[in-house]
């Protein structure tokens, strides 16, 4: 589904991703771990199409297309979803309106009829239960004045509504208490299907107790320095990253 080959990306003069290769197949869950500042969010943003990062070489193939050729909104319409590490506030625009706009843009791209606000209510109702969110949240402005936990849950709600093929969750677990963590993780698990895939970017092993990954990658200094199965996460939890980092800095 996703094939990243020798990807280099920079901001201005500064190279952040220094040759990433990663293949994700349908039905798989990949975890990307690594120390702060290693480039995890950058990778997530590059996949989503943030214009602030310049891809200097390498390629990303998604569903047989050249992903880097597509505008960010075209990627979203093609089923790529990024749950932001820091979700953005849009004052004055209700969550309900925003979500329906997004939902309809994606439907339009697939030549499906748009839903009016009444029809959309049914979609919403079902999805709200997935993340155990109250319907009153829909009338609040997008992320404005939300607590950290509410913002993260709102990202998962959006994911539930938009039903992406490839979801990238960027530290969706940070700042969540244990209940919220469980809700978010269960939400992600419920949305899992054989034809979609998830990349979970996380700092902590604890999320991976709930969302069990098929593959774990360690990103450091803009490179994937180690890949393994789910036991790698446990090893990292026990030993930290230092044992892996030394050869890189040498």
């Amino acid at each position: 589904m996703l094939k990243i080959t020798n990807l280099h990306a920079s901001v201005g003069e500064k190279e952040i991703l220094k040759g990433i290769s990663l293949t994700v197949n349908a039905g798989e869950v990949h975890a990307i771990m690594g120390p702060n500042g290693s480039g995890k969010s950058t990778l997530a943003q590059v996949i989503a199409g943030h214009p602030g990062y310049e891809v200097t070489s390498g390629s990303i193939e998604y569903d047989g297309q050249d992903l880097l050729e597509l505008e960010a909104e075209e990627r979203a319409q093609a089923g790529v979803f990024l749950a932001f590490q820091y979700p953005i506030e849009i004052p004055g625009v209700t969550n309900a309106y925003f979500l329906r706009a997004a939902y309809n843009e994606i439907r339009k791209a697939h030549n499906q009829p748009e839903l009016d606000p009444i029809e959309f209510l049914d979609v919403m109702e079902e999805k709200l239960t997935v993340v155990e969110m109250d319907a009153s949240m829909m009338q609040r402005s997008v992320n404005a004045g939300f607590s950290g936990g509410e913002k993260k849950r709102n990202e998962i709600l959006q994911m539930a509504v938009l039903e992406p093929k490839l979801a990238v969750l960027d530290e969706t677990d940070s700042g969540l208490d244990i209940d919220a963590l469980r809700i978010v993780a269960e939400g992600v698990n419920k949305l899992k299907r054989p034809d979609n895939a998830t990349i979970v970017v996380t700092h902590y092993q604890r999320l991976l107790n709930y969302i069990v990954p098929d593959h774990v990658h360690v990103l450091a200094g803009g490179r994937i320095i180690k890949s393994g199965g789910k036991e790698l996460a446990l090893e990292l939890e026990a030993k930290g990253y230092d044992w892996l980092l030394e050869p890189v800095t040498a």
Binding site: G49, E71, E73, F84, A101, L162
Partner: peptide
């Protein structure tokens, strides 16, 4: 740019 990118990442074009 971040607000616009957030909308784009949800499928809305820049003008929208």
């Amino acid at each position: 740019e971040d607000q616009i990118f957030y909308c784009k990442a949800r499928g809305l074009n820049a003008e929208h």
